[in-house]
Design a protein around this nucleic acid. Structure first.
Lengths: 197, 197
DNA sequence: CTTGAGTGCGTACATTTGTACGCGAAGCGT
DNA sequence: ACGCTTCGCGTACAAATGTACGCACTCAAG
């Protein structure tokens, strides 16, 4: 029955690193759909299209699986962020760009956002995940700081983190204009002062 | 064995609202300690010092329990926030006060903070919790906005939310001064402009 | 072709879990 | 005082889960 599939799948040779990676990816997908506590060996195996024994073989314990999966998700996220930043023209309107970024994260990339916050909160209860979540933080801060100054960088990192979470949960989703106004206010200060551009 | 305790406990009469509340409180404690996925009927029963059947009686399903517990936790949080605000002198240094608030939340009130974020992220996967998490948001926004203007209120709410989460996870905890500088920067804008006080 | 090791996985088992059910005790109308 | 209804809970059961174990299959050496 499933022996056919299994046999065909098993053919992957004795030393297949893709297998492990595929399982980790599936775990991330499961997190996105059901949350951290939806991650079971069986759910991940089903999502990855591999048999149960495969997940337990490649990841001895569930915590290993979670750690690898979430670390990888965080790393991917950081990479994407850096890529986005380097693709941004130096004279771009930073506030508008950030608002765009947020909108992307609560729409097309909603799944990634969910995983990111799941990781974040899971780290509150699982020390092994601290490193990955801290990496995301550091990336955010360094990243926002590189376009402005360190203080503003931290400000934007915190704002981004909180705003994105609130936006992801808000029932009438905030509009691009609202988000942009917030970033503008954060970067340039109270409106009354100067019209700087 | 536990019959003695159980009998003594059962004596609580037929219509004991305290029972239900105690279970909810215990559930919150379990969330604080083990996270959302640590909330099982048995764990909550143990934490509340009530027998297993009691939890299943007062809360038909686990989701009910979670919903009530987290809603209550959020409500309590909002109440505390409002109290804090009304106890703040009108001419207080708002940035310093906010920094103080954050420091309190990542130290003495760390448990509440953890629960709050657990709730928040759990809401991403459980629609029934959306209302409670949205209530927290609204409270934050209204609350911060009442001291400044709506735009700054939203800015501070987002910043507070993100900053608190990052601070709760940061390994070398941020200092009061750092936090305060951030709020000051957020409220008054880039430092170069005016020394407004 | 045989054989030995090693890789990958199917399966079984003990545990934990959610939940339904039934029983005893308290209130209350008569 | 006596039944009847409702409340509260002890318990049992089925499903789900983590994990250990052993088998099949591949590959290379001889």
């Amino acid at each position: 029955m499933s022996n056919n599939d299994a046999a065909a799948t098993r053919r992957r040779g004795p030393n297949d690193p893709e297998r492990r990676a595929r399982i980790a990816k599936a775990a991330i997908e499961v997190v996105a759909q059901r949350g951290i506590d939806g991650v079971t060996h069986r759910a991940v195996a089903a999502a990855a299209g591999v048999p149960l024994g495969s997940t337990t073989y490649h990841f001895a314990t569930l915590d290993d699986l979670l750690e690898v999966a979430l670390s990888e998700a965080a790393a991917k996220n950081v990479r994407a962020l850096k890529e986005w930043e380097s693709a941004l023209p130096p004279d771009a309107d930073f506030a508008a760009a950030l608002a765009d970024l947020v909108m992307g994260y609560i729409n097309e990339q909603y799944r990634d956002t969910v995983v990111e916050y799941d990781l974040y909160v899971a780290a509150l209860h699982r020390p092994r995940l601290r490193k990955a979540s801290a990496a995301w933080d550091d990336a955010l801060i360094a990243f926002f700081g590189s376009r402005t100054d360190p203080l503003t960088g931290r400000l934007l990192a915190g704002l981004f983190c909180g705003l994105l979470m609130q936006a992801a949960l808000a029932d009438p989703r905030p509009t691009l204009e609202e988000i942009e106004a917030l970033f503008r206010r954060a970067i340039h200060g109270p409106a009354s002062r100067n019209s700087r551009d």
